[in-house]
Write a protein that binds this DNA or RNA. Structure first.
Lengths: 216, 216
DNA sequence: TAGCGTTGGTGATACCTTCTAACCATCGGT
DNA sequence: ACCGATGGTTAGAAGGTATCACCAACGCTA
């Protein structure tokens, strides 16, 4: 999942055990949420007792941090993979939804409720901007160079540090952000179960929102 | 906050202690998130020891459920209060953002990451539909009776149980949902700190999204 | 091949949490 | 003045994180 190559057999064993720990952690998170993750329970399921896990992770926080990192990487990978088939916003939107529905708690680990004190590791921001670059590509692609910029677009263009060195016009900056926020809006509410009870199909709403960004 | 009137002095005292417990709970949630809520810590801060709180709440879950209920009621109240000044979507959007920024963790308690097993109490769905009714009012107000309905609007109209007996045309159903999802998309990402690092002002993006629903 | 440092695993322990059980005090109505 | 309902206490079970001291086993090196 992360580092397939290891030189010595010791390191290979270590990496393998770490992966097994993470595997059990994901199962536990998927079934009861991240807040219910228990190192003790993982250890028991792996046949070893309690404190052994501390040889592989400094503590619960470091394990969760590692899972967040993996989730980020996984999302970035699926985005990049999809983008290689052509920079289409609808495709990206569909890939995002597939990825989220495959494991809702994994989505929430990345985009869900944050713990007030917690600081995401700095390399996740690098992955986040990698994701944003793919979106910016797709937003820049099908667009005519420049129409007159709206006030919002002026503002975003004035603070475009987050776009890095990407040559996206102001309108693409705005479209990339609304792509992100609109899809997250529908998706997170759907995954949170806020639509259950209402009988409509969230997929239709989702594709309509994706369309609203693609055509404008 | 919830039941100001009580007959006997005993019940009055009980209600008062319950409110104080909730007050401390909110402080704790605001500073460390809902997952870090500790009944023991609350009891200590109130000068009484441990299990006394179980005379007032059956357990941690019931306390959190009560907080969620209060949060829902608070949001519905601010919505209704704002709606009495006239059914304007921009005003509602502004009221929502104010309410969310006042206490981000309270927002996440309502719309944030759900615990897989947990079931929201059924009376929250009643409050949720009350909120939705206000939005539907505002969406129906400034609208011409009927343009040709889009496929999404047809679908929503075919499954309009969630709108109750509200006389909203198909276009209003769609606008109400996108109002909800688009604003939640910007707001939740902002509150989660996903925009920190990017230097732009989320307020501009938020008002632009509110505008996008108001004008269409 | 013998030695030995590094590494992985163990049980004991401290300290936290939720929550139950048993006991006691106090309030308020009859 | 009595007595049940109510509120509060301590003790304790069960389970969590995390540290410590100890032990075994692996693998490199002399």
């Amino acid at each position: 999942m992360s580092k397939p190559e290891a030189s010595t057999p010791r390191e290979r064993y270590r990496a393998q055990v770490r992966e097994e720990i993470k595997k059990h952690a994901w199962e536990q998170i998927a079934s009861a949420g991240a807040s219910a993750l228990s190192l003790n329970a993982i250890a028991k399921r792996m046949g070893m007792s309690g404190p052994a896990l501390y040889r592989y992770f400094a503590g619960r926080d470091e394990l969760i941090t590692e899972l967040i990192r993996d989730a980020y990487r996984s999302l970035a990978d699926t985005f990049r993979a999809r983008a290689e088939a052509g920079p289409d916003l609808r495709d990206l939107a569909h890939a995002l939804r597939e990825w989220a529905l495959a494991d809702p708690q994994r989505y929430f680990l990345v985009y869900g409720t944050p713990v007030p004190g917690y600081q995401a590791p700095d390399d996740t921001t690098r992955i986040a901007s990698e994701i944003m670059a793919v979106i910016l590509d797709a937003c820049t692609a099908g667009q005519v160079p420049d129409e007159p910029a709206s006030p919002l677009e002026e503002h975003l263009h004035a603070h475009r540090d987050w776009a890095g060195r990407h040559p996206a016009p102001p309108s693409a900056l705005r479209r990339a952000l609304t792509f992100w926020t609109r899809l997250h809006g529908v998706l997170s509410l759907e995954l949170a179960g806020q639509f259950t009870g209402m009988r409509f199909d969230p997929a239709h709403l989702y594709t309509a929102e994706a369309e609203s960004v693609a055509r404008d």
